[in-house]
Computed example of a mutant assay.
Amino acid sequence: MHLTRRHALAAAPLTAAALAGCSRGESASGGSTTMIVPFAPGGGSDQSGRALADGLERATGDTVSVENIQGGSGAIGYSEFLGMHGDGSKLLATETALMALALTQDVRFSYEDFTPIFKAGDDFAILVTRPDADYGTGMDLVDAARERSILVGVSGATSLDEILFSLIEGDQQMEFDRVPYESGGEVLAALLGGHIEAGLLNPSEVLGQLQSGDLKALCALAYERYEADELADIPTGLEQGLDVAFAQFRAVIAPGGIDEEARQRWVEAAREYAGTEEYRTYLADNFLVEAPLYDKELGEYFEQYNEELAEAFT
């Protein structure tokens, strides 16, 4: 199954304190904002949220703090964020779980309950294993899983890696055995510890281990090879016969019900941030494909993404 999402994915650049507290009458500068990350520290979502918070803090002069609210594959963090309705001093670094949770679990929220602010770019995943593994390509791993149990780690039942493994299974008519974790950081630790045989991780999560030789890349589930020199030699799954490519968005949302002034200030702050060198550095450091969207345009993107993701779960 080859899902086309060339528009998608990225992390949450937007926020920070430029708008901190705007809905409460505080000034757009010198305020204090909390960026919620609904996953454990150490994974791609956490790294992205922190990088965006730091960049926006430098760009705006506001204080932007990061708070991890983990559990339930992101459901606990999103649920708490739902309760922050109308609070313009809160933001959340969001990704695929925003839609996937509502599509697969009994949660009280959907993407429509929040205020879309800014989508920074598209984030693809790399299929990795230990360097002494017998297989050297993604198709080798698939073939091995036809013969015996292959344990793979997933960072939640609605995570990008869970979606991608499911798409591979649908494309190749086979199955992996999953071990669930709370974050990409935990998947990485399990790989290094030899507790699982393979995982799908974002480049920013695993680059150090690839460069040190502690892990090796089998393929990238992307439409094209990475342009960055560090990753340019990694073939795509498409090159190896895996007809799967899917991008996770990384974006920033605000609670639902914030006033119009706060919403506009957040969007303006996001546009300003996207024009800075810090934003370019964020994209490069996290190996994201630039794909900025704002405000209502992002809301339309969320609607389309939700429709396509619903098809992936059927």
Rank of each mutant, 00 (worst) to 15 (best):
A120W: 03
G275C: 08
E278C: 04
A310N: 06
A245G: 00
T115S: 10
I150L: 05
D229R: 14
S212R: 06
R50E: 09
S45F: 05
E307W: 00
G237K: 04
K296D: 15
D113A: 07
A269P: 08
M35Y: 08
D161W: 06
H7V: 13
D140Y: 05
S79E: 15
A254H: 00
T236M: 01
S89Q: 12
T4V: 14
S79C: 02
T104C: 01
Y111C: 06
G72M: 04
L188M: 14
M35W: 02
L101Y: 00
E227H: 07
D87N: 15
Q264G: 08
G237I: 04
R265G: 10
F246W: 14
V128R: 00
L141R: 09
S166N: 13
Y111R: 14
I150S: 06
G153V: 07
D62N: 15
V289R: 12
G43A: 05
T15I: 13
P131C: 02
D123I: 10
D134Y: 01
Q105G: 04
G49V: 04
L210K: 02
L3H: 14
K90F: 15
G299N: 02
G71Y: 09
A11Q: 09
G153D: 00
E308T: 15
A16P: 12
F109V: 08
T314W: 09
N202D: 06
E277V: 09
L200D: 03
G138A: 03
T4S: 12
T236G: 07
S23A: 15
T281F: 10
G25I: 05
F114R: 04
G213K: 01
Q173M: 03
L221V: 10
L19C: 10
S32K: 12
E272S: 12
E272Y: 09
A10P: 11
L56H: 10
E239N: 01
G72Q: 11
S149I: 14
